[in-house]
């Protein structure tokens, strides 16, 4: 656990030292802030549902930018050779890096809590629904980070990792469109894999255990795959 925490600390300090995290946070808050103002002004309702829905789509682009460096840079700089000749396991490194990225996402969500606070000041929003939406967004962002780490494990190039991450997340984002288009029986198979469908539940105030397990499974699954990729690269 100490080593996971050491890797997490290193990643957080790298995020805070380099401009990437600031750029992602700023861009995210500007765009989501725009959607929030637009939603509140046009609907005149004290809700963050539409804002979080749009924020999910922004996260499809932002999460891979945050994660593209995490493993690709280690291979590119050769520091993986320094790291993986100390008594640390691949799993500990992958977990530490994920938690580093997740800390930045958590910071983003804390900053995004300004929206409910504004609504609460001027109106009478349903805090239960809003918090449920934020929980869903937090879990979904975690799953997106894990997917981004997976694409970062596949290559030495940060750019390739970022683009591949966005492509993979876009695929996950539109899976329910494909499911609807394909119809039964593929619809029954693909629909439960839709990240938007599970997120929509949270956003409506429904905290379903199945949805929590779904996102946690995505996180664990992608991190596991990242570990396997790193391991297989050592054998090549």
């Amino acid at each position: 656990m100490k080593k996971i925490w050491a890797v997490t600390k290193r990643e957080i300090s790298t995020y805070l030292y380099t401009p990437t995290a600031y750029a992602v946070l700023a861009a995210f808050l500007v765009i989501s802030g725009y959607f929030f103002s637009l939603s509140v002004l046009t609907t005149q309702s004290a809700s963050v549902q539409s804002t979080l829905g749009n924020a999910g789509l922004i996260m499809v682009f932002m999460a891979p930018i945050l994660t593209m460096r995490l493993l690709a840079e280690e291979s590119n700089l050769g520091t993986s050779e320094v790291l993986f000749t100390t008594p640390v396991s691949i799993g500990q490194v992958v977990a530490g890096k994920f938690l580093g990225g997740f800390a930045i996402i958590t910071l983003l969500i804390v900053l995004m809590m300004a929206y409910p606070l504004v609504l609460d000041y001027y109106g009478n929003p349903d805090w239960g629904v809003m918090l449920s939406g934020y929980l869903g967004f937090w879990l979904m962002a975690g799953a997106f980070l894990a997917a981004g780490i997976f694409t970062s494990s596949l290559t030495n190039s940060q750019m390739v990792a970022g683009v591949a991450g966005i492509a993979l997340l876009m695929l996950l984002w539109v899976i329910d469109w494909a499911a609807q288009a394909l119809g039964a029986p593929l619809e029954q198979i693909l629909m439960p894999l839709s990240v938007t469908r599970h997120f929509a539940d949270f956003n409506r105030g429904i905290i379903d255990t199945q949805s929590i397990i779904f996102y946690l499974s995505l996180i664990v699954g992608f991190l596991f795959l990242s570990g396997r990729v790193l391991e297989s690269r050592q054998w090549r």
Binding site: K2, K3, A6, K9, R10, S13, T14, Y17, T18, L77, G78, T79, E81, V82, L83, T85, T86, P87, V88
Partner: peptide, 26 residues
């Protein structure tokens, strides 16, 4: 182990790097 070309994390200070490696080395 000292790998060839001595790869390091460029955004870390020497102090932070050695501290990180000390933690990795238990």
């Amino acid at each position: 182990y000292l790998p060839e070309y001595s790869p390091l994390y460029p955004e870390m200070t020497v102090a932070d790097f050695l501290d990180f490696m000390a933690e990795m080395k238990e």
